[in-house]
Write a protein that binds this DNA or RNA. Sequence first.
DNA 1: GAATATTCCTAGGACCCCTAGGTTTTTCCT
DNA 2: AGGAAAAACCTAGGGGTCCTAGGAATATTC
Lengths: 199, 199
Amino acid sequence: MHMVRAGLTADRVTLAGAELADEVGLEHVTMSAVARRLGVKDASLYAHVRSLEDLRGRIALLAADEKTIRIAEATAGRAGKDALVAYANAWRQYAHDHPGRYTATQIPIQIDPELVARAAGPRRAVELTYSMLRAYALQEPDLTDAVRLMRSTLHGFTSLEAAGGFAHARPAEDTWVRCLDALHTLLEHWPTHDEGDST
Amino acid sequence: MHMVRAGLTADRVTLAGAELADEVGLEHVTMSAVARRLGVKDASLYAHVRSLEDLRGRIALLAADEKTIRIAEATAGRAGKDALVAYANAWRQYAHDHPGRYTATQIPIQIDPELVARAAGPRRAVELTYSMLRAYALQEPDLTDAVRLMRSTLHGFTSLEAAGGFAHARPAEDTWVRCLDALHTLLEHWPTHDEGDST
DNA sequence: GAATATTCCTAGGACCCCTAGGTTTTTCCT
DNA sequence: AGGAAAAACCTAGGGGTCCTAGGAATATTC
């Protein structure tokens, strides 16, 4: 007659939501569905998670953390083009392995600031990118611009690829390799400007 | 006593949905909300639009058309870096002016094929990109790769920018200009490979 | 072992998607 | 012009979702 408890926790709820997102897509992650997966009534989740919006934010933070860890492991001990390729591949691979979690990172975020503060992922990710680009010896503000270009390109590519944006004519994989080559060359010959515009 | 009709049509419903998306975000575009905006009961919309999913698809196609037209107008009569900058600015400006419509173009699309066939937007967009890059005299498959890199970078940048991905330290506008410079130089010095890898 | 805090539940309101079938307006045909 | 046919819009309602309020069962703490 002992009713055994499910042992819920904010993290366990978030994880269930993340798994569900990878399986059926983030837009189908609902309170009811997560509750069903955990063998619990939907109302029970609200003791651990403020709202569906909140749950989505937590999934996004989880994904950011996981992605950062993967990139850190992949780039450890590498430098220059080696590091660049490892960084980019880890990014893309994470998006492939966890499509639902990855799309969670794209949503215009409205997350509890207190949560964000505790999550090391995003901050760590920026540091990683900067140190990965160190080999190219760029000076500020070019370094910041290069970081942003990197993130834009990687995010754009994986995002378009996931949405089926590349027709089947040429394998996305081949384009990916060439784009990394191109980024590498670009970073080596970054067009530095004198601050004064000639207009 | 004449009940005046709203004069609904698939296009008018789509437009109302698109406007709503820009105002309150695509995720808040609901059948009921669109119906309210049109002064109509939600059930009335189903005579013109198959479902909410269908409506979202139509908004995405509308956005693709509009964006393509803007880019076409902006790049008309330009070539080389001029054309590149005009193309990219038109893209980014559209995303700024119509954030809801723009995010509609990002969703992994599941649209009625018959609708897609009638919409000239996407096809036209690809042609535009190819002809814009013609000035750089790339040969296939480099041309396709360059097109994909362009789209990835532009989409990634505007998407990250919209999501608030760039901290306030350096104005996004400045980074944007530098990125366009970088893309231009990259396209001029595209790293062509001999087909055989030396491994 | 009793008091307290926590976990999970039931009940229910408000909203949303979508279908079925009826009523009113418009269009079309002769 | 008048009637038939088509289209536009409605009401009614089932089933799902999010979320709150408050109650019952289980852990935890002293």
